[in-house]
Design a protein around this nucleic acid. Structure first.
Lengths: 115, 115
DNA sequence: TTGACATATGCACATATATTCATATAATGA
DNA sequence: TCATTATATGAATATATGTGCATATGTCAA
């Protein structure tokens, strides 16, 4: 008996199965959540939600190595969650997406109400 | 020179550093995002957003093994994102949190607008 | 009580990923 | 040009995590 022979109990299952979002679209969403699902990156986003900062100051704020911060920022930039601005040697990072703030706030309140 | 000797450029860095959320609270939020950051779990949530379903039907909808679905559901239940209802042999799963729908929708639109 | 169906769980394995270390690139001022 | 400061990147390692397999638990019908 192969996988195709599974018998559904609720006919709605077929409808929902057919209406699932496409794999690549799903990948985009999960990748977004994965990006948010890391203490370092989330802390960076929270910090940048207050103000733009350079890599050095983010290193100080989070208390992590410059390399770790830089790697995290590259991931965030790849997801277009942060953008950069250069002023001489210094590169300033800031949030690149209004949604992030909203989603962040929602998640925070979601957690708090759950307690 | 130790980590404490990092010199900040922007005095706001100190303010933001002091206002960071507590580690355990941060863990809660990232754990929540991690839970959402998986294709199987997210697909389950999307399916349950349409209707409650039993494990068997979710297995059919996602085309995965019963074990994989069950494991995923345990994680979701641990995060209080789904709840269960038993009817005889069958256990029905449904969303346990209004926020999830909202956050899901936001993430989906976030992705779409970004293209 | 036995068999069939529905779901859960422990273990093992494979894959993904965050961090560190070392080093590279880039910009500035002397 | 050289030294210094700021940031990025590649490789290696350690840890986390999703899935399949086998099996356990639970429920009902006969």
């Amino acid at each position: 008996m192969s996988k195709n022979d599974i018998k559904i109990h609720d006919p709605k299952a077929q409808v929902v199965k057919d209406s699932l979002i496409k794999e690549d679209e799903l990948d985009d969403v999960t990748t977004f959540f994965k990006t948010m699902g890391d203490n370092t990156r989330l802390n960076i986003l929270i910090a940048l939600n207050h103000n733009e900062f350079c890599v050095n100051d983010l290193t100080y704020i989070l208390g992590l190595s410059q390399s770790a911060i830089s790697h995290a920022l590259m991931t965030l930039r790849g997801q277009k969650l942060v953008k950069t601005r250069r002023d001489g040697k210094i590169i300033y990072y800031s949030l690149d997406d209004d949604h992030v703030t909203t989603i962040l706030d929602m998640a925070l309140s979601h957690i708090k109400e759950r307690r």
